[in-house]
Design a protein around this nucleic acid. Structure first.
Lengths: 144, 144
DNA sequence: TTTCTTCGTCGATCCGATCCACTCGAATCC
DNA sequence: GGATTCGAGTGGATCGGATCGACGAAGAAA
């Protein structure tokens, strides 16, 4: 990981489909040299994967929210985890230190869907003692 | 946006560099037909952009945290916004409804960096009345 | 029915990726 | 000190995917 690798990653973050020949012009290396660096970044797990970033608004997901969840005991984690994995509207789930145990980031079509998610999926789960939902009004920055 | 477009998006989410010819085998269309659909998804803004997802651990960012921020008055927003945009460790910044005004997602090398971010960058700002930091212990799910 | 539009296929061409042989420079080892 | 080895890059040839244009089929509107 040197200066050039960082530059390559920066370019690929902006455009994950930028060709090696395009990149080679920016970093002043030959095409095979760039390809080799990218291959190594993937192999060395610095690059997790190439992906596509969707526009949630355009796909009807107008509501973004964060839900903090308190789980009573560790034995309830398995059921909770299953629900998280199976629910596509849950974009992220982080285990936390502090008052709440989990923080979920969810994207939904409407407040109706949010209500349903909270009352029929989350609160229905064994061991969920408390939740706290924060509705997102707007997003200033969002990267990975 | 039909069934086939959704399938294409699903494939591209998993591998943003999957070739049109690869995709064409999955969705049973010709290569130009797939290319055309991808082009239209980009043009119609459903696809925001192609990008690369990095492994934060591999780049030394071992600490992930969420910081809730309370801002006293709207006139303090400009300075806050400037700080957010200029700080690379802030991955996300959402404007919230509720007790706190902003939720930040930050990735850092260490607790030392977190301390510095909170006390020297965030709390130093005019108008920041209260913050609440949640440290992430582990992440179960993380998509866009 | 005829026409127009949309969406697809097919084939040709073009361009980028990959592979291989070779070079260069730095570090290692006798 | 000189030879060796290894990592990283270059340049050219080849291979394969993307793109483009011509064409065809299906559905909607006149």
């Amino acid at each position: 990981m040197d200066r050039i690798d960082e530059e390559i990653l920066k370019l690929l973050k902006e455009n994950g489909r930028m060709t090696s020949s395009e990149i080679s012009k920016h970093v002043h290396l030959s095409v095979p040299a760039v390809s080799e660096r990218i291959r190594k970044l993937e192999e060395g797990q610095v690059i997790d994967r190439f992906t596509v970033r969707l526009n949630r608004e355009q796909t009807g997901l107008h509501l973004l929210a964060f839900i903090m969840v308190q789980l009573e005991k560790p034995e309830h984690v398995a059921g909770f985890r299953t629900m998280i994995v199976q629910t596509p509207s849950v974009l992220e789930c982080h285990h936390l230190a502090g008052e709440y145990d989990y923080l979920l980031k969810v994207a939904l079509k409407s407040t109706g869907e949010l209500e349903q998610l909270i009352s029929e999926q989350i609160k229905r789960l064994e061991g969920v003692s408390k939740t706290n939902t924060m509705i997102v009004l707007s997003t200033m920055k969002e990267e990975m």
